[in-house]
Simulated scan of single mutants.
Amino acid sequence: MTKRILVVDDEPAVTRMVKLNLERTGDFIVKTENQGSQAVAAAREFQPDVTLLDVMMPDMGGEEVATLLQEDETLSRIKIIFMTAIV
C-alpha cells in the first residue's frame, strides 16, 4: 500500500531531495511545501499519512504547525516526524 508523505521545509533543495529519494522506492507519494504557514492547507488538500516537518522555518515554526495539525479533527491522525539541520 502506497503511503502519502507531506514534506515541509523552507529549503526547496531539501524538499526536492527528500521527495526524489522517497518516490524512487515506489512506496510513497510525496507532496512538498516550502512555507510553514501553508503546511496545514497542504495537509488538508493532500491528506498525508505522515508529515516530515522542519523544526525551524522563518514564517511559522514546526512546533506551531504541529500544534495546528493536532488541533484539527480531520488532520490529528497524521503522524509527524520533525527534521532539523541543527547540530
Rank of each mutant, 00 (worst) to 15 (best):
1 M>L: 01
1 M>C: 00
2 T>Y: 01
4 R>H: 05
4 R>E: 05
5 I>F: 02
7 V>T: 08
8 V>E: 02
10 D>R: 08
10 D>V: 07
10 D>G: 11
12 P>S: 07
14 V>R: 02
14 V>K: 03
15 T>I: 09
15 T>V: 12
16 R>A: 13
17 M>H: 10
17 M>I: 10
18 V>F: 04
20 L>T: 12
21 N>C: 12
22 L>F: 12
27 D>Y: 09
28 F>L: 11
29 I>E: 14
30 V>H: 12
31 K>T: 14
32 T>R: 08
33 E>G: 10
34 N>P: 08
36 G>R: 09
37 S>V: 10
38 Q>V: 04
41 A>R: 11
42 A>T: 08
42 A>K: 07
45 E>G: 00
46 F>M: 06
47 Q>L: 09
47 Q>D: 08
48 P>W: 04
49 D>T: 02
49 D>L: 00
49 D>I: 00
49 D>E: 11
50 V>T: 07
52 L>S: 06
53 L>Q: 03
54 D>K: 05
54 D>S: 06
54 D>G: 07
57 M>F: 07
59 D>V: 03
60 M>W: 02
62 G>I: 07
63 E>C: 00
65 V>G: 05
65 V>L: 04
68 L>S: 02
68 L>Y: 00
71 E>R: 14
71 E>G: 09
72 D>L: 01
72 D>A: 04
73 E>Y: 00
74 T>C: 02
74 T>W: 00
75 L>W: 05
77 R>W: 11
79 K>T: 04
81 I>P: 03
81 I>N: 03
83 M>L: 15
84 T>E: 08
85 A>M: 11
86 I>C: 09
87 V>G: 15
